[in-house]
Simulated scan of single mutants.
Amino acid sequence: MSTEQTVENAARTSTGSGGKWLIGFILPLTLALAWEVAVALKWSDGRLLPTPSRIFLTLADLAKSGELTGHILATLQRVGLGFVFGVAAGTLLGAVSGYWTSVRRLIDPSLQALRNIPSIAWVPMFILWFGIFETSKVILIAVGVFFPIYLALSGAILGVDRKLVEVGRIFRFSHQEMITRILLPATLPTYVIALRSGLGLGWMFVVAAEFMGAEQGLGFLLVDGQQTGRPATILASITAFAILGKLTDWLLASVSARFLTWQDGFKPAE
């Protein structure tokens, strides 16, 4: 194959993958354009639901003043810390609960009961226990991240093919070998999905966390817009949440995919 053909094939591959990636913008851009047209034609005044152009102008003004950067960094820090602590606790307890029956019988009923408590219900207690500063906010986010990871990992270990485990026992694998050579590869795909689910809940819980006396953050910006009657600010905050949530999820999925290259899974139709 000549150099020209190689370059041409690479260009086609790049263009094709880029085109597939751009497909995801069709729906939101269509809805945004439709709302712009509806307001321009006076079908709506756009007062309570501002147009996308007005929302992005609000974001631009906040960015120009430096206010948006401060809010984003504060929220990212809280979500990041809560995610790390929630993943650590969920992974540890999920692993031991799935691997040892006695531990599961001891802790699982209590954790399943706690899992059904709404996030807002924790806010008053966390304020009393940890105050209104960063500790209570990070712990609340960690609680949200913890449960999907614990539940998915524990269930994934219990769902490992019994024949694989029996093979490990035949070869007299130690606990460490059983975990690293059989259980870890078998549960890794489910664990990755649990991480993404936990991250999504972390972004949801940060809003409740920033209700607890926050002076900075996208949740604070959202509440401030509500209290001052600025719907464009509310929707600008929601838009920032959506963009950051999507970017962090994409980053996590991209990093995780490197550990799942061995999978030979179902290929969806185009």
Rank of each mutant, 00 (worst) to 15 (best):
Met1Lys: 08
Glu4Pro: 03
Gln5Ala: 06
Gln5Tyr: 09
Asn9Phe: 13
Ala10Ile: 13
Arg12Ser: 13
Arg12Val: 14
Gly16Met: 11
Leu22Cys: 06
Ile26Leu: 01
Leu27Glu: 12
Thr30Trp: 00
Ala34Ile: 13
Leu41Asp: 10
Ser44Pro: 05
Leu49Lys: 02
Pro50Asp: 06
Pro52Ala: 00
Ser53Phe: 14
Ser53Arg: 10
Ile55Tyr: 05
Ile55Ala: 00
Phe56Lys: 08
Thr58Gly: 01
Asp61Phe: 08
Ala63Ser: 14
Lys64Asp: 15
Lys64Met: 13
Thr69Leu: 08
Gly70Thr: 12
Ile72Trp: 11
Thr75Trp: 08
Val79His: 04
Val79Phe: 04
Val79Leu: 00
Gly80Phe: 13
Phe83Lys: 02
Gly86Gln: 08
Gly86Phe: 06
Ala88Val: 15
Gly90Trp: 10
Ala95Thr: 15
Ala95Ser: 12
Ser97Ile: 03
Val103Thr: 10
Asp108Leu: 00
Asp108Lys: 05
Ser110Glu: 02
Ser110Cys: 02
Gln112Phe: 01
Gln112Thr: 12
Gln112Val: 10
Leu114Thr: 07
Arg115Gly: 03
Ile120Asp: 04
Ala121Ser: 13
Val123Ser: 01
Met125Ile: 15
Met125Thr: 15
Phe130Cys: 02
Phe130Trp: 10
Ile132Ala: 06
Thr135Pro: 01
Lys137Tyr: 08
Ile139Lys: 02
Gly144Glu: 09
Ile149Thr: 07
Ala152Asp: 14
Ser154His: 13
Gly155Tyr: 10
Gly155Asp: 15
Gly159Asn: 15
Arg162Thr: 14
Lys163Asn: 15
Glu166Trp: 12
Phe171Val: 06
Ser174His: 12
Arg181Met: 04
Ile182Glu: 06
Leu183Cys: 01
Ala186Arg: 03
Ala186Lys: 03
Thr187Lys: 00
Pro189Asn: 05
Tyr191Asp: 05
Leu199Val: 04
Gly202Cys: 03
Met204Ala: 08
Phe205Leu: 02
Phe205Val: 04
Val207Gln: 02
Val207Pro: 03
Ala208Asn: 13
Met212His: 03
Ala214Asp: 01
Gln216Trp: 06
Asp224Lys: 09
Thr228Ala: 00
Arg230Trp: 09
Pro231Thr: 01
Ala242Arg: 06
Ile243Met: 02
Lys246Ile: 13
Asp249Phe: 06
Ala253Pro: 03
Ser254Trp: 15
Arg258Phe: 11
Arg258Ser: 12
Leu260Val: 08
Leu260Gly: 10
Thr261Ser: 11
Thr261Phe: 11
Trp262Met: 10
Gly265Phe: 15
